[in-house]
Design a binder for these strands. Structure first.
Length: 554
RNA sequence: GGCCCUAUCGUCUAGCGGCUAGGACGCGACCCUCUCACGGUCGAAACCCGGGUUCGAUUCCCGGUAGGGUCACCA
């Protein structure tokens, strides 16, 4: 029997139910009809738990690269490890993408809806098993793959033996026990119902290396793979390596954007492409987001770092645009300059460039996130701030949500304070900070705060304070503008023996009881219970005459 | 350990043979100012080490060192 015939027979023996040919699938999924420069990218997460911020980072870059080239960005659920799968994992992924506004053109959109499922789908790897098996069978027939009947224990002892002899561990060369098994041996094993995996019959030579051009990393040195890696597991699911190659080929992916932890398995992937006789896509391997711990950097970890989960940011109430802009800034540091030049453009307009992605990993910097977020929120209208705060509060702070809905107009006025100025306030980085910082506007909360007498300027006596409060109460009325309001404070200061401007006070401190700042501070503390607030004139206007007088009398 | 990747202020980075090494965040001072925030001005703060190549290296090459990744029937 020729080896060709024997291979065919082995393939049929191993996968008797696979009757389609690779060609059937290739013609079912023809090349995409897109403009020449259009890029097709994908996000391929595993539904194994909460979505990592690093996943959003990769998805964001992939989405921008596709859509900024009039290409296609799709979601593919990589659920080939049923032992690690989490029940609502897919839903979490879909929701997170939605929350971040990363729109997918194909793939699952919800539990039941899958966009364009007929075109290049299914978009769930567990539903594509027959496809992988067909391609695996093809490799078996060509003698480029073979069944391996080793048990886990056997592989374990093999590894131990290699390690103790200081030999590179792996299933290759003479260590690949089943690599050259004949038809008879395979038949016997199958008859005894011994489970098997399908391995690649590698032709790689460890000493050979070549230069590969990665879009993000640049030129890299690649060593040939000589490991007979597993393509199909004993449960008939493919490994990542095999699924990646088959899927990204059939689904017409042009640019594979993924974390650089995959860099070291690139040789495997290129080899599978070669064995299948198909062209590999472009690759961009991007550095992960890191965290500093005990002086050394490490990847943000799912288990140890709460900030690795996207939920962390949603709980704190960062606007999604803040997170997106922070991530864009990590991806392409030119983002900051672009933003300065285009303060009101959507961040979708910022052109992301793979070749500009930093080669080294960035430490996550919450300070920077806060700064970007303050900038983002300061550009929102009071209505936007209100709506987004309410949305956040509805799922994270019910009491506050009620206060917001019951006091809609009042809150809108509060959020308008110093917002429509040419230099708007930048004091909120997240929605969770707002409740506390505006609490004094609400009588129910203000009255609980006993105005602390040591908040007043130290050098004023109780009588001084009383005098300021009384005389201001007498002249107070709602003013039309800040200047009138301040003039009144100044006049009052003069009449009570305080300098109406601080410079006068500084030149001869002994001729005054204090200065206009002290007078304003007394009023500020009386009205808000705080020493640091936004513009007092605006606050008084928002509170209204009645409430101001009541607080002054208190 | 093998292989691969990376290395500029505390952090994110610009730099692509000649620069007082630039910017941003954070930090400090001052100005503006009714406090805070904003804004403005200024300041402290970096080229991992050693060899080459070169008239000249942060930049190119080699070697160290350090950090990271990877060596699964996980992705």
């Amino acid at each position: 029997m020729t080896s060709e015939l024997e291979n065919k027979k082995i393939a049929d023996l191993l996968l008797p139910n696979i009757i389609k040919k690779t060609g059937d699938y290739i013609s079912k999924y023809p090349p995409r009809n897109l403009p020449e420069d259009a890029k097709v990218t994908r996000f391929g997460p595993s539904p194994t738990g909460f979505l990592h911020i690093g996943g959003i980072y990769t998805a964001l870059i992939s989405e921008r690269i596709a859509h900024q080239s009039d290409g296609v960005f799709f979601l593919r659920i990589e659920d080939t490890d049923k032992t690690r799968e989490v029940s609502n994992g897919t839903a979490q992924i879909i929701n997170a993408l939605k929350e971040f506004g990363l729109s997918t053109d194909e793939g699952p959109q919800s539990e039941s809806i899958c966009l364009n499922s007929g075109k290049y789908g299914p978009y769930k790897q567990s539903e594509r098993v027959d496809i992988y098996l067909t391609f695996a069978k093809h490799l078996l027939e060509k003698g480029l793959a073979y069944p391996c009947f080793c048990t886990k224990d056997e592989l374990e002892t093999l590894r131990k033996e290699q390690e103790s002899n200081k030999i590179r561990p792996g299933y290759y060369g003479k260590w690949a026990r089943h690599r050259d098994a004949g038809l008879k041996e395979i038949e016997d094993n199958l008859k005894n119902n011994i489970p098997f995996v399908i391995r690649l019959k590698s032709d790689g030579v460890e000493e050979n290396s070549f230069v590969f051009s990665d879009l993000a990393k640049g030129k890299i040195n690649v060593t040939e793979n000589n490991n007979d890696i597993v393509l199909i597991k004993a449960d008939s699911y493919p490994t990542y390596h095999f699924a990646h190659v088959v899927d990204d080929f059939l689904m017409g992916v042009t640019h594979v954007i993924r974390g650089d932890e995959w860099l070291s398995s690139l040789p495997i992937h290129l080899q599978i492409f070669k064995f299948l006789g198909i062209k590999a896509p472009f690759y961009a391997h991007i550095s992960p987001i890191l965290k500093l711990e005990n002086g050394s950097k490490r990847k943000l970890s799912k288990r140890k770092d709460p900030e690795s989960s996207v939920d962390f940011y949603f709980e704190k109430g960062y606007p999604v645009d803040s997170i997106i802009e922070y991530l864009l800034n990590i991806a392409n540091s030119g983002f900051e300059d672009w933003r300065r030049g285009n303060p009101y453009f959507s961040n979708m307009e910022f052109p992301v460039k793979l070749e500009k992605i930093s080669k080294s990993g960035a430490l996550f910097d919450l300070n920077k996130l806060d700064n970007i977020s303050k900038e983002v929120i300061s550009k929102m209208t009071a209505e936007e701030v209100f709506e987004k705060t309410l949305t956040w509060a509805t799922s994270h702070n019910k009491n506050f949500a009620n206060i917001l809905t019951e006091n809609r107009d009042f809150c809108l006025q509060i959020f308008s304070i110093e917002r429509n100025d040419k230099k708007p306030r930048k004091d909120f980085a997240s929605w969770s900070e707002i409740e506390e910082s505006i609490s004094y506007f609400f009588d129910s909360k203000f009255e609980q705060v006993k105005v602390n007498s040591n908040l007043f300027p130290e050098h004023l006596t109780d009588t001084d304070i009383q005098e300021i409060v009384d005389s201001y109460s007498n002249v107070y009325q709602e003013e039309n503008n800040r200047d009138d309001w301040f003039e009144k404070i100044k006049t009052l200061s003069e009449s009570l023996g305080y300098a109406s401007n601080i410079k006068d006070f500084k030149t001869s401190p002994d001729s005054y009881k204090g200065h206009v700042g002290d007078v304003a501070m007394v009023l500020r503390v009386m009205v808000t219970g705080k020493t640091q607030t936004p513009d007092l004139y605006e606050i008084m206007n928002v509170l209204g005459k009645e409430r101001v007088l009541k607080r002054l009398k208190f």
